[in-house]
């Protein structure tokens, strides 16, 4: 099976987020970047497991600048066979999707994997965009994926429940918790990753329809109101009269 995994980079969750003077750009000084957890822990690992079980290859693709190479190498160290980076400081999700689709179009991938969302943009839309561009079915929020021949059985998380879906390759899928267990790259993986191919390709031309006008921080929370643990009637009164949530 020929598998493609789309991986993005994101600031580590514990990083403090600040913006530049005119508040239109993230201030990147001191930011620690990681591979988006859904891409790394679930999408990539499940793709590698399928490759181990059924043969074939796992390619990872990232749309971004050269500073992303260390994240791509980590993906190779975890077990992907090859990598592609589309060399552009991506603008919108649609731009990213068009770059991925332009590469994947004629490659004959059986499954294109995504994370359920990036933890910086929280868009959850690139997967659906690529699927539409490649005219593939798209199963989002998959918490389980089993292959039987050319067909997959997928559990899809929905609000308060699960859908079980059967779909034949080629298709696109986005991975949520449950799909696989995180893998830590070992020494051998790290060494072989250095020799695996990382192809850098020029972007295709696209038009952006969205741009950030400004970023804002949430209004600072007023200090917590402490309630006497003996007096829960007071808490209930505040929840009812002040917060108006009861």
């Amino acid at each position: 099976m020929k598998l493609l995994v789309c991986v993005s980079k994101t600031p580590d969750t514990t990083t403090k987020i600040t913006f530049n003077g005119d508040k239109t750009q993230l201030d990147t000084t001191g930011i620690q970047y990681i591979m988006n957890p859904y891409d790394e822990w679930y999408a990539l690992v499940r793709a590698i497991e399928l490759q181990e079980a059924e043969g074939g290859s796992v390619t990872i693709i990232n749309v971004g600048g050269a500073e992303n190479d260390s994240i791509i190498r980590k993906g190779l160290a975890i077990g992907a066979d090859a990598a592609v980076r589309i060399d552009t400081e991506s603008g919108s999700s649609l731009d990213v999707a068009k770059q991925i689709a332009a590469y994947a179009k004629d490659q004959g991938f059986d499954i294109v994997f995504f994370g359920k969302e990036t933890i910086d943009y929280n868009g959850s839309e690139v997967g659906a965009m690529v699927a539409e561009l490649l005219e593939m079915p798209f199963i989002s929020y998959a918490s389980k994926l089993e292959m039987n021949g050319d067909a997959a059985t997928i559990n899809r998380d929905i609000e308060g429940g699960t859908e079980v879906i059967e779909v034949a390759t080629p298709f696109a899928v986005s991975a949520a918790k449950g799909m696989a267990e995180q893998r830590i790259p070992n020494m051998k993986g790290i060494m072989t990753a250095k020799r695996k191919p990382l192809e850098v390709l020029a972007p295709v031309a696209t038009t952006d329809f969205t741009h950030v006008v400004s970023y804002e921080m949430p209004s600072a929370k007023s200090a917590v109101k402490l309630i006497d643990p003996e007096n829960m009637d007071e808490l209930v009164r505040l929840l009812s009269e002040e917060a108006k949530v009861l």
Binding site: I17, F209, H211, V212, V213, Y215, M217, P218
Partner: peptide, 14 residues
């Protein structure tokens, strides 16, 4: 909301 709720982005659609 962006950055898992740590900030908001005001985004124009053209």
């Amino acid at each position: 909301p962006v950055f898992s709720g740590k900030a908001f982005a005001h985004i124009a659609i053209t």
